[in-house]
Design a protein around this nucleic acid. Structure first.
Length: 855
DNA sequence: GCAAGGTC
């Protein structure tokens, strides 16, 4: 009987290379949602058809159910006991559907996911989406391949020795996901809601907390604290001047430096009086600088930052581009040792063609010794070049510089060590001992191709033991101890790696996160400098519960879930226990938040003292203030109420008009940029939509909360509501309605209240008003158009017309639609499109308008 | 709007 075997890898690139190996290059590929490689062979003694495909990382993501998504109505403390749901990570990629489709009719499943805990977890995600769809046959149907490298011997051996997926390891990952989610989200929502809107110059829309990002930030702040606490001290050092054969010899004092000026002066005097310095011993030693190990991701990120001045996130992006275009090998690897059987010759052969280092590679081909040392984690080989490329071919810039580095690093890792001779001379004057060292290169080794690693320093002039040199002068050099500088990004990466914060794939993300959240900024030399906000947060954690910002938070979680992975503890028990610990910490944090608040008060100015007077509050009838730093909002100092606004634009008062529902003064919001629309909103309604189900527009720009402007308000009695300003349904989006912008003159326009679609009305208009009449053909509201004197486009030269801008061809031709296909051409186009619009859309008219689309 | 982990 023939069987059909489905093989699944963690990413498309791996499914391709594993299929290549298992099929001896005979696989045929086809595209589905993801690539599938097929071939025939035998499986466990049976003839078999093989289908190899992949997922793209995790299939599912964890989150809270919709009920818990509202920041206002959900108590963050309740999140610790909340249920969680899993949904498809990337619905657009249709990974679930793909797996189910490919599983149909298969008799066996072989899991080729990466051999780490995350991979083990993905195994079960794959099982969930395949086994139910597979054919039932007797015996074991699901197998796990375990491999430590993507090489032919490893892969074929793994196929011979199939095992079973490890449920414990997978459960450990589920536990980690739940803990990270609950803890991170609870703290983030609580502190965001507590501080947001409380201070005027606090320019952060989300004040996030996370078991990785917060300790990462804390490293940067700790360095800042060391720097601020540093007390410089004066020190003195004796520096005699000597030379030989015209070459000056730099000597180090055996006592290094003294913090007592008087004592240092005494020694200076003694040395002066000695007048001569005698060489008491001279010795030489051969030393070596080791060639680099294979390049792994973390090392690449460090060097990209410190040597190339590239942000880690940028370095990852660049490396990925180089990988997908075939110039570099897979850039996410922990391994710094090449796997056994790695084909160095193949890479060297390719590098031989390179105009810059081709000769060097050629020379290495016959002479290199395979690298030893480093660590082979069994994920992917170290990062190496794959194809030869010149600066011009790669378009220069970061792409070229990163490629250049990786190629040189690879060649360096095959080159000999660099060797040099270090000569040390001991000298004495009076009773004082000094030393001088010189270096002379012996063999450049790898530094020939990595010149920045070359040994610096000069050789000593020839000295004889017993030889005496005259001292020409004796300085007393004064110095000050100095604090360390801010952490370099490269040092930060090193600390994260050392403390197990993040993984090779996520380190760059965490650093990027704390930059984007405005906790740190990257300064000259890629040093990571914490901001006022970053410092205040960490100091706050330190005051309330130091552990919250220490790397041990993560280490603790890792240790707990390690117990699950090893099968020593039940997942449920560990999760409950650990959640309980975090919930306790959370409750304590909440009760002590005023300690952190005190720090915020010292660093940020309260809302009451910031902002410009803008509009009247409907409750106290006094003026509210506009806080224009991001996130822009309105604050009533009397009611101590903060009202959010849409972001990415400006607001001004709207003729002093009031909202008939709550008495707040209405403001006009204008979105920045060309064609940015303007719409009216009542600050109170925007934040507290008065009608159940009225649909909201999400704020534009960072941190904008969804709100309800007048253009979405279904109030029939208010002259600003979309009910009164609507013209017709939006031809571009599903839900929107095109409304007249009553303040857009002299360039009159209409905008969709949901999407960015807009229509400029004829240019020669003087005034526009909505008529009460409706178009007989399409039910759109008709407009009364008043043209400028002598500029009427109407056939009889009439000054005004009441027309439907959709159906009146003359008027429609004079309009210009933007951010959408031209509606003029479309309205007579291909007939009805899509679903009918009747009865759809929240907050829409009960007797919906026809859309342009319906023609 | 929120975490961290995969990967694109």
């Amino acid at each position: 009987m023939k069987c059909t075997v489905l093989l699944v890898a963690e990413k498309p690139s791996l499914s391709q290379s594993i299929a290549q190996i298992l099929s001896n290059g005979k696989a045929h590929s086809r595209r589905s949602f993801l690539d599938v490689h097929e071939w025939s062979g035998s499986f466990r003694g049976q003839s078999a058809h093989f289908k190899m495909t992949s997922v793209m990382g995790h299939v599912m993501s964890i989150d809270f159910p919709p009920k818990y998504q509202n920041w206002e109505t959900t108590d963050p403390a309740s999140l610790f006991d909340a249920p969680t749901i899993k949904s498809e990570s990337n619905p657009k990629a249709h990974v679930c559907k793909h797996l189910q489709q490919e599983a149909r009719g298969c008799t066996h499943l072989v899991l080729w996911l990466d051999c780490d805990r995350e991979g083990e977890n993905i195994c079960f995600e794959v099982i969930e989406n395949t086994v139910k769809w597979m054919a039932r046959v007797p015996g074991q149907q699901v197998f796990r391949a375990r491999f430590s490298a993507i090489s032919a011997p490893e892969i074929t051996a793994a196929m011979e020795m199939l095992g079973e997926p490890n449920r414990c390891e997978a459960l450990a990952v589920d536990a980690r996901q739940e803990l990270d989610l609950k803890c991170g989200v609870a703290f983030t929502r609580f502190q965001t809601r507590f501080f947001q809107g409380k201070y005027g110059n606090l320019d952060a829309s989300v004040i996030s907390y996370g078991p990785c990002q917060t300790p990462t930030l804390a490293f940067c702040v700790q360095r800042h604290q060391i720097m601020t606490a540093f007390q410089p001290e004066d020190f003195w050092s004796v520096r005699p001047h000597i030379s030989k054969a015209g070459q000056r010899i730099d000597v180090e004092w055996g006592r290094g430096r003294l913090f007592d000026q008087g004592a240092a002066q005494l020694f200076q005097q003694l040395v002066k009086e000695a007048r001569m310095m005698r060489c008491t011993s001279i010795s030489s030693k051969e030393e070596r600088r080791q060639r680099p190990h294979g390049l792994n991701t973390v090392e690449m990120l460090k060097i990209a930052s410190s040597g190339l001045g590239m942000a880690p996130a940028q370095a990852m992006r660049t490396a990925e581009v180089l990988y997908t275009s075939g110039y570099l090998s897979y850039p996410r690897t922990e391994s710094s040792a090449y796997p056994p059987g790695f084909d160095f010759q193949e890479v060297l052969d390719e590098m031989r063609r390179h105009p810059i280092w081709g000769d060097y590679a050629q020379h290495l081909m016959g002479t290199f010794t395979p690298p030893k040392g480093g660590n082979d984690v069994g994920d992917h080989p170290p990062i190496t070049p794959i194809a030869s490329a010149t600066e011009a071919e790669l378009g220069g810039g970061d792409t070229w510089r990163l490629y250049d580095y990786v190629a040189r690093h690879f060649l360096g890792s095959l080159s000999p060590d660099c060797t040099f001779t270090r000569t040390t001379a001991l000298l004495s004057a009076g009773q004082e001992v000094f030393s001088a060292t010189g270096t002379s290169p012996k063999r450049p080794g790898f530094t020939a191709v990595m010149p920045w690693r070359a040994v610096e320093g000069e050789p000593l002039p020839p000295l004889q033991e017993g030889e005496a040199l005259p001292i020409t002068e004796v300085d007393l050099k004064q110095g000050k101890t100095s604090p360390p500088d801010y952490l370099t990004e490269s040092e930060l990466i090193g600390l994260m790696e050392k403390h197990g914060i993040g993984t090779d794939a996520s380190i760059a993300v965490h650093i990027n996160n704390i930059c984007e959240r405005n906790y740190v900024s990257i300064q000259a030399g890629r040093r990571v400098v914490p901001t006022e906000l970053g410092i205040t947060l960490v100091r706050g954690y330190q005051l309330i519960d130091q552990e919250l910002c220490l790397p041990q938070v993560r280490a603790h979680v890792e240790k707990q879930i390690g117990l699950i992975a090893e099968g020593k503890a039940e997942k449920e028990a560990v999760v409950l226990h650990t959640l309980d610990q975090f919930a306790q910490k959370f409750r304590y944090f909440v009760t002590k938040i005023d300690r952190m608040d005190a720090l915020f008060e010292a660093s940020f100015s309260p809302l009451a003292s910031s902002g410009k007077v803008l509009s009247k509050c409907g409750k106290c009838l006094r003026y509210m203030k506009l806080i224009s730093v991001r996130p822009m909002r309105i604050y009533c100092p009397t009611c101590e109420e903060v009202l959010n606004l849409p972001q990415g634009g400006t607001v001004k008062l709207y003729k002093g008009l009031e909202c008939p529902l709550d008495g707040y003064e209405i403001v006009l919001f204008s979105l920045s940029g060309p064609d940015g629309k303007t719409y009216a909103l009542c600050p109170f309604c925007y934040n507290n939509p008065p009608f159940e189900g009225a649909h909201k527009v999400s704020g534009q720009g960072a941190g904008g909360k969804a709100g309800m402007p007048c253009t979405l308000c279904p109030h029939t009695g208010c002259p600003h509501s979309f009910m009164r300003m609507r013209v017709t349904a939006c031809p571009e989006c599903e839900e929107g309605t095109v409304v007249l912008d009553p303040v857009s003159g002299p360039k009159w326009r209409m905008d969709c209240n949901t999407c960015s679609f807009l229509i400029y009305l004829p240019e020669t208009l003087h005034a526009v008003k909505l008529s009460k009449k409706r178009c007989q053909e399409c039910e759109s509201a008709m407009l009364r158009l008043d043209f400028k004197r002598g500029a009427s486009p109407l056939p009889d030269g009439a000054a005004d017309i009441t027309a439907c801008v959709v159906c009146n061809e003359l008027v429609a031709k004079l309009c210009t639609a933007k951010h959408g296909r031209s509606y003029v051409n479309r309205r007579r186009g291909s007939g009805r499109r899509g679903r009918g619009r009747r009865g759809r859309g929240r907050g829409r008219d009960a007797n919906p308008l026809l859309s342009f689309r319906d023609f």
